[in-house]
Amino acid sequence: MNRLIIILFLIFAFGFQEKTDYKAAREKMVNNQIKARGIQNRLTLAAMQTVPRHKFVPEKLLSSAYFDSPLPIGYGQTISQPYIVAFMTETIKPKKDFKVLEIGTGSGYQAAILANIVDSVFTIEIVEALYDQAKIRLNELNYHNIFVKNADGYYGWEEKDPFDAIVVTAAAEFVPPPLIAQLKDGGKMIIPVGTPFITQQLLLIEKKEQKIKTKNLMFVRFVPFTRNKDQ
C-alpha cells in the first residue's frame, strides 16, 4: 500500500512538474526571447504566452520546444523560431475583428497564435501529411476559429476574401498574383525570406489605394559600415 502511494505521488508530482515547467518555459521564452528583443504588442505577447508551443513540435524535440530556435517538423519544413512568429504577428498589427489568411500551415503554431488574437484564420497547407497532422492537432486543442485546407496556396482562398492580412510562412520565389488580389485595401502581407533554420529578412507588402509597396524588414541587425563623416 505504501509503495502504491509513493508511485501515485511520483506520477502526480512528475505530471504536475511537467505542466509547471512548460508554463515557466513559455514565460521565460516571452520575457527573454520576445519582449527583450523589442516586441511590445500586447495581444501578440499574450498569445505567445498562452499557446502551448510544445504541442506543435515533434515528440522527440519536446525538450527543445521553447528554445530560441526553429525546429524541424519533417518534409524539409520547420516550426519558426518563437521570435519570428511574434515579429510576424506584431508586424501585421492584428485586431480582434481581423480575418487572416495563412499560406503554409506547417505545424499550425503560427495559426494558433493568430487565432488567439483575431476573429478567424484561414490556413492552407500543400503537403498532405503536414495538413493531416495540423488539422488533428488544432482540433484537439479546440481552435474552432481556424479553418485548414489542403491545397495549393498559390490561389489563396477566394471564397473567403478579402483578407485583412496574409501571412505567408512558406515563401516562394514570387508573390502569387491571386494573393495580392485577395488582400483588402489597406491590408498587409508578411513573408519570411530565407532557407530553413535561418530567416534573414521579412518582406512586408502593403496595399493602399491599389498601390503596392514592399519593405524588407531586416530583423537580423549587423554592424553598419564605418563611413567618413563627409559621406
Binding site: 498559390y154 520565389e173 514570387f174 508573390v175 502569387p176 498574383p177 495580392i180 488580389a181 507588402i205 503596392i212
Partner: peptide, 12 residues
C-alpha cells in the same frame, strides 16, 4: 518566376 513584379496579374 524569380522576383516577379507585383504588378503582374496573369496566371503563372
Amino acid at each position: 518566376a524569380p522576383g516577379l513584379s507585383l504588378t503582374y496579374a496573369e496566371n503563372i
